[in-house]
Design a protein around this nucleic acid. Structure first.
Length: 305
DNA sequence: GAGACGCGACGTCGTTGAGA
DNA sequence: TCTCAACGACGTCGCGTCTC
């Protein structure tokens, strides 16, 4: 690893370029299109199930009493489609847990949700409800073709967020376990020696002096009660790398204030990150590592003992 | 003056820990 | 045990400023 700040910046600029190249190479239009078609199919099924369970939206309360998961479809039938948090503002008794976990909605709440849905549903897309008839084939086709892409767009973005972050963090955990480090259950790190040498915690909380404890992705116990606080960051464009690096700097500052030399903050980076943002990390004395070069992280850890 | 850039504000979703 | 507010992660938008 280079020693001077300038050589370090140059070193990591090359790593950033490599990470960007790998990100671009990994993009595959054929596979992406295949995944998208699968998400669209799944979204159409979500809509179809909600339509059947609710007697084509005529009896939303009954559908929800059976399975709160139908809210995913119902929220997208509203004009405009609405998020879970926004729906809760309209209908405070409803909880998003019932949607996320496919749990039955209590009868009273189901009635309230149905009333909110009735007030906010897209009148054109659900026009059969106004005349008390069943939807025609054309109307069914219209609702599936119109709303499935909206639902699929959300689910694709959500699964991508979770998949990328999980993949990056799991790679670090796997590396540490291969090296014989012992994993500890997550708990608040609020005293020195809370993470013994060659032990680590995944997704745990790390005390700060001023603010509430801040979550750290991986905390590694080094020599002399020093803790390596590793933040894992995936970003897919340079606009966003500004924000992700700001996240790291904010935490690094909070930890440094509280722990001084007993904490080393590190950032494990992946994807598209502007070189200038990597430089900001280096200037703030945050150790920088790369997901495509975990060997460097491994070697750095070995050097600490 | 147009385009690039920087960045704050805000949105969505999943997870978690405190409290009922 | 369950609920839900709080929080973290990531993405997008729009506006002010800068640069050519």
């Amino acid at each position: 690893m280079p020693q001077t700040v300038e050589s370090l910046k140059s070193f990591h600029a090359a790593r950033a370029a490599e990470a960007k190249r790998l990100y671009q190479e990994a993009r595959d239009p054929v596979e992406s299109a295949k995944d998208w078609r699968a998400e669209l199919r799944a979204a159409r099924q979500v809509l179809a199930r909600a339509l059947r369970a609710s007697d084509y939206f005529a009896d939303v309360a009954s559908a929800l009493r059976e399975n709160g998961g139908h809210m995913l479809a119902l929220r997208h039938v509203m004009a405009p489609p609405i998020s879970q948090d926004q729906f809760k503002l309209l209908c405070p008794d409803w909880s998003k847990g019932s949607e996320n976990n496919d749990k039955p909605v209590a009868p009273g709440v189901a009635v309230a949700v149905a009333a909110t849905f009735g007030a906010w549903r897209d009148r054109h897309l659900t026009r059969w409800l106004d005349t008390g008839r069943r939807p025609t084939r054309v109307e069914m086709r219209e609702i599936l073709l119109t709303l499935a892409p909206l639902i699929a767009n959300q689910t694709v973005a959500t699964s991508r967020r979770n998949r990328l972050a999980a993949r990056q963090e799991q790679a670090v955990v796997a590396l540490l376990e291969r090296k014989g480090w012992a994993r500890l259950p997550s708990s608040l790190i609020d005293r020195r020696a809370a993470v013994p040498e060659r032990h680590f915690m995944h997704k745990t909380r790390f005390a700060t002096a001023t603010a509430a404890p801040q979550e750290v992705d991986v905390a590694c116990g080094l020599r002399n009660t020093v803790v390596l606080a590793m933040e894992c960051k995936v970003t897919n464009d340079e606009t966003n790398s500004v924000k992700r690096v700001n996240d790291v700097l904010k935490k690094a500052e909070a930890w440094k204030t509280h722990w001084g030399s007993f904490v080393i903050t590190a950032a494990l980076l992946d994807g598209v990150i502007a070189a200038k943002d990597v430089e900001r990390l280096i200037d703030a004395k945050v150790r920088v590592f790369w997901s495509h070069d975990l060997d460097s992280f491994s070697a750095w850890l070995d050097d600490q003992f």
